[in-house]
């Protein structure tokens, strides 16, 4: 079984978000970039599913050369090889078109992404890939098992879950529950340096969206502290002042 895991390079979760150039550029100064946490879950499951010679795991990233440390991290965790599409990832459509084009030339049995990237919080790439390749896509999965060419998948829904049976190949976005992220060991880190990392030039994509700028949410007013003894008065305030109950 051949599995492709799509990974993104995102600011670390502890990053304080600031912008430059009149709020049009994300300030990367001093920001540590990491493998998107949900992609780590997807990668961990892909490795589990192919363990013991049952298949291979390729990771693919659309990014400039600066994303290679993140790609090497994925190789250290246990991916067999990697592909970097040499382009700035403008938006989800651009990324999906690049990856779809690569998949059309190198077929895979399963394509995994994270449920969303923690920077723009989109969960668009999985669905777009599914449509471009005309195969099923599931946006947020909590569990994934494969038996032959059929997968059993748990999908998150509001207030519950859905169990699906899906024919391979398909695309799915992994969330917590699918697997525990794996920490690279020393052997993984050593071998990651020599594992193949192919660099592929991008295909041309016409854009349908342009980025205008960022805004920082307005700061909240001063917190109103209520004495512990008077805790009960909170309920009245929530009703009469905040009007939320």
């Amino acid at each position: 079984m051949k599995i492709l895991v799509c990974i993104s390079n995102v600011p670390d979760t502890t990053t304080k978000i600031t912008f430059t150039d009149n709020n049009t550029q994300f300030n990367t100064n001093g920001v540590q970039f990491i493998l998107n946490p949900y992609d780590e879950i997807a990668l961990a499951r892909a490795i589990e599913l192919t363990e013991g010679g049952k298949g291979t795991v390729t990771v693919i990233n659309v990014g400039e050369v600066s994303t290679e440390p993140t790609i090497r991290k994925a190789l250290a965790i246990g991916a067999d090889d990697a592909v970097r599409i040499n382009a700035k990832p403008h938006d989800a459509w651009f990324v999906a078109k690049q990856i779809a084009s690569y998949i059309q030339q190198n077929s895979y049995d399963l394509v995994l992404t994270g449920r969303e990237s923690i920077d723009y919080n989109g969960s668009k790439v999985a669905g777009m890939l599914g449509e471009l390749l005309d195969i099923p896509s599931v946006s947020i999965i909590k569990k994934l098992d494969i038996e032959g060419d059929l997968a059993v998948v748990e999908r998150e829904i509001e207030g519950g879950k859905e169990i699906l049976s899906i024919q391979l190949p398909f695309v799915a976005g992994a969330a917590e529950g699918v697997a525990e992220p794996k920490i690279p060991n020393m052997r993984g880190i050593m071998s990651a340096r020599t594992k193949p990392l192919a660099v592929v030039e991008p295909v041309e994509v016409s854009t349908n969206l342009t980025f205008s700028g960022f805004e920082i949410p307005a700061a909240r007013g001063q917190v109103k502290l209520i004495p512990t003894d008077d805790s009960a008065s909170l309920i009245g305030l929530l009703h009469t002042e905040a009007r939320v109950i």
Partner: peptide, 13 residues
Amino acid sequence: AFSGKAFAIFELT
């Protein structure tokens, strides 16, 4: 964007 740490504004063309 950034999980609620900011807003992003886009133009659909």
